[in-house]
C-alpha cells in the first residue's frame, strides 16, 4: 500500500527533493559569500553587537549601509519564501491529494479493492505529509542558518516577534504547513475538483493566518516592566510590547492621559510634571524575547487543532463518497 502511494506520487517527491537540494545548496552558498563580505568589510563585531552601541563607531559607518543594501533584500526574500512554503504545500500537495483521484475516477479503483477506505486515506496522508513537512523544515533551517550569520545586522535586529521573523522560526512553519496541507486535503475531498480545491485552500489558509495573527499576542504570558522615569522606554530587544502606560502612586493603570492638564505644571521638566500629577511610573507589559518559544507552541497548537478538524472532515467526506 505504501509502495503504490509512493509510486503514484513520485513526481512530487522528486520535486520536493530537488527543492531541498536547491534551497540547502543555495542557502549554504549565500551564507559563505555573505560571511566573506562581512569579514572583508570588517563588520564581524557589529554582527554580534548590533548598531546601537556602534553609533559613531565602525558599526554606524558606510560599510554597514552597504552591507544592508546588498544583503537585506536577499534575506528578506528568502524568509518570505519560507513563509510561503506552507501555502505551497497546501495548494500543490494537499488539495490534489483526493481531488485528483475523484477527477480521474481512480478513487473507485481503490474502493473496489479489499483495502479499506480508512487505510487508503491514512496511507495517502502519511506518505505525502511526512516528506512535505520534512522539506518545509529543512528549507526553514537552511535559510535560518544563513540569516543567522548576519546576526544583528540582519532581520534579528528587529526582534523575534515581527510578522516575518516569527513566522519562519520555531515550530511555526511546520504547524502552518500541516494546517495548510490538511485544509487543502479537506477542501479537495469536498469539492472533488483540483482547481477549486487549490483556490479554496489558498484563500482559506490566508484568511486563517490573518485571523490568528490578529490575536497571537493574547496567547503569550506577559511580564510587567516598570520605570521610575515615565519617559523611559522599554528596550525593543527585550520583547514584544503588548500594553503600556503609566502607574499612579497607588498602582492604578493610566493609559489615556488626555484628561490630565499638564500646562499648569510648576516646572517645565516633563518627568517632574508627570510625577506632580500622580503618574509616578511608566509600565510596559511585554512578552519577553526569551518566551518566544512558548508563543510559537501556543500558536502552533491552534494550527494543529485546526488540522485535526480538517482531517476529521476529510474522513467524513471520503466515507460518504460513492
Amino acid at each position: 500500500m505504501t509502495w503504490i502511494v509512493w509510486r503514484l506520487q513520485r513526481p512530487l517527491f522528486i520535486t520536493l527533493a530537488a527543492g531541498i537540494v536547491l534551497a540547502v545548496g543555495g542557502a549554504l552558498l549565500l551564507r559563505a559569500v555573505m560571511t566573506a563580505d562581512i569579514a572583508a568589510a570588517g563588520l564581524a563585531d557589529c554582527v554580534r553587537e548590533g548598531l546601537q552601541r556602534g553609533v559613531g563607531g565602525a558599526c554606524g559607518s558606510r560599510q554597514v549601509m552597504e552591507f544592508q543594501n546588498a544583503w537585506g533584500n536577499r534575506m528578506w526574500v528568502a524568509q518570505v519564501l519560507v513563509l510561503g512554503l506552507p501555502v505551497l504545500v497546501g495548494v500543490f500537495v494537499g488539495a490534489p491529494l483526493f481531488a485528483r483521484e475523484y477527477e480521474q475516477g481512480t478513487h473507485a479503483l481503490a474502493f473496489t479493492q479489499s483495502v479499506s477506505r480508512t487505510r487508503w486515506m491514512v496511507t495517502k496522508f502519511l506518505v505525502t505529509v511526512l516528506p512535505a513537512l520534512t522539506a518545509v523544515v529543512v528549507i526553514q533551517l537552511a535559510v535560518a542558518h544563513w540569516v543567522a550569520a548576519a546576526g544583528e545586522l540582519g532581520p534579528q535586529q528587529s526582534g523575534p516577534f515581527t510578522a516575518i521573523s516569527f513566522g519562519v522560526a520555531g515550530v511555526s512553519p511546520a504547524a502552518y504547513a500541516l494546517c495548510a496541507y490538511t485544509l487543502g486535503m479537506f477542501v479537495g475531498a469536498v469539492s472533488k475538483r483540483t482547481l477549486v480545491g487549490m483556490s479554496l485552500a489558498l484563500g482559506a489558509f490566508v484568511v486563517i493566518r490573518f485571523v490568528v495573527d490578529g490575536f497571537r499576542e493574547s496567547l503569550g504570558t506577559t511580564t510587567r516592566v516598570t520605570f521610575d522615569d515615565p519617559f523611559e522606554r522599554v528596550d525593543k530587544s527585550a520583547g514584544l510590547t503588548v500594553d503600556g502606560g503609566w502607574l499612579t502612586a497607588d498602582g492604578k493603570e493610566v493609559t489615556d492621559t488626555s484628561r490630565y492638564d499638564f500646562s499648569d505644571c510648576a516646572t517645565k521638566d516633563s518627568t517632574t510634571c508627570y510625577h506632580e500629577k500622580g503618574l509616578v511610573k511608566s509600565f510596559y507589559d511585554i512578552i519577553p524575547a526569551d518566551a518566544v518559544g512558548a508563543l510559537h507552541l501556543a500558536e502552533a497548537s491552534i494550527f494543529v487543532a485546526l488540522s485535526a478538524v480538517f482531517v476529521a472532515g476529510t474522513v467524513w467526506a471520503v466515507r460518504r463518497q460513492v
Binding site: G105, T106, A108, L109
Partner: peptide
C-alpha cells in the same frame, strides 16, 4: 467491497 466480489467499473479506472 465484499471479499468475494470483483467489480469492473464502466470507466475502467486505472492509474
Amino acid at each position: 467491497m465484499h471479499p468475494d466480489v470483483s467489480f469492473l467499473i464502466q470507466r475502467r479506472p486505472l492509474y
